[in-house]
Simulated assay, not measured.
Amino acid sequence: MAGAGPRRVLGIDPGSRITGFGIVDARGRELVYIASGVIRVEGRSFPERLRAIFEQLGEVVDDYRPDETAIEQVFVRSNPDSALKLGQARGAAICACVGRNLPLAEYTASMVKQAVTGNGAAAKDQVQYMVRTLLGLRGRLREDASDALGVALCHIHRDRLAGYFQ
């Protein structure tokens, strides 16, 4: 995936109504916050929501030019219809990235929590606190954006552990 130089990673927290994104640069040992936000697609038909995720995430990629992408895997809860919709939203996000020739890595929620907090069962507020701490951010982050930044951080940490970032 990554080489020894600076890398820009786009993390994605997919959702069928709100998709979070977060962009982090890894410059040696330094982590630099670049941007984060959400793509809101509420109030549209489902096919229109998928198109909006695809198009708007594509704009994020075009604007910020990440080197790599990391996305959270679908966690199947008790509602299969919700899981299917989430999977389709995730697919739209994946297509927006791989259609622009970006390498893509996938991580479970517990892998992200483990990488960011040291605890694979950490609560959302613990993840948000550590994301803010690791990136030197003040104030509260929107949950979806914080989760996406956590995915990007997880990817960077895993690459570092694999020897990509020295």
Rank of each mutant, 00 (worst) to 15 (best):
V9T: 15
Y107K: 03
Y33F: 15
G11W: 15
G120A: 10
L57V: 05
A148W: 14
P103T: 10
V61G: 00
M1S: 06
V38N: 05
G37I: 09
F46H: 14
R44K: 13
T108K: 10
G91A: 02
A123F: 12
A145W: 02
V76T: 09
M1L: 02
A92M: 05
R51A: 14
G139V: 07
T108S: 09
S82G: 08
K124G: 02
A122N: 11
L31G: 14
R77W: 08
V41I: 10
A52M: 09
R142F: 12
G43E: 12
R49S: 11
G15W: 01
V60C: 13
S16G: 11
L31N: 10
G28S: 06
G43A: 11
L153A: 06
V41R: 09
P6V: 11
G37W: 10
F75Q: 01
I71W: 08
R40A: 02
F46E: 14
V151S: 08
G58T: 07
G136A: 14
M130F: 01
I94R: 12
H157D: 10
A89C: 05
G3W: 08
Q166V: 01
A115C: 03
A70F: 06
H155W: 03
E55P: 02
A2Q: 07
G99F: 13
L84T: 13
F46M: 14
R17T: 02
P80I: 01
A70S: 08
Q88A: 07
V74P: 03
E106Q: 15
M111S: 06
F165Q: 06
A145M: 00
D63N: 13
L104S: 11
V151A: 13
A2P: 09
P6L: 01
Q114G: 02
R29I: 04
A148K: 02
D62P: 05
A115K: 04
L137T: 00
I18H: 03
F54Y: 13
A35Y: 09
M1G: 08
G120R: 15
A89T: 02
A105D: 03
L31T: 08
S82L: 00
I53V: 13
I39Y: 04
L84M: 09
V131D: 05
R132H: 01
M130Q: 06
E48M: 00
A148E: 14
T117N: 02
R17D: 04
D147M: 14
L153S: 00
K124I: 05
T117Q: 08
R65N: 05
A70M: 00
R17V: 09
I34R: 15
I34Q: 15
D144Q: 11
M1V: 02
A105Y: 05
R17W: 02
Q166G: 13
Y64H: 11
A121L: 10
T108M: 08
R7S: 11
S36I: 05
L102T: 14
R29P: 04
T117M: 07
E42R: 03
G58D: 04
I34E: 14
Q114K: 15
G28R: 13
R132P: 09
L10V: 15
R8M: 10
K85L: 12
V61C: 03
S110Y: 00
C97P: 09
G163D: 01
Q126T: 04
L102W: 06
D62K: 04
G139H: 10
N79R: 06
A109G: 11
P6R: 00
L86V: 10
S16L: 06
Y33S: 12
C97Q: 14
I156R: 07
A89M: 07
C95D: 11
D125S: 12
R29E: 00
A92N: 01
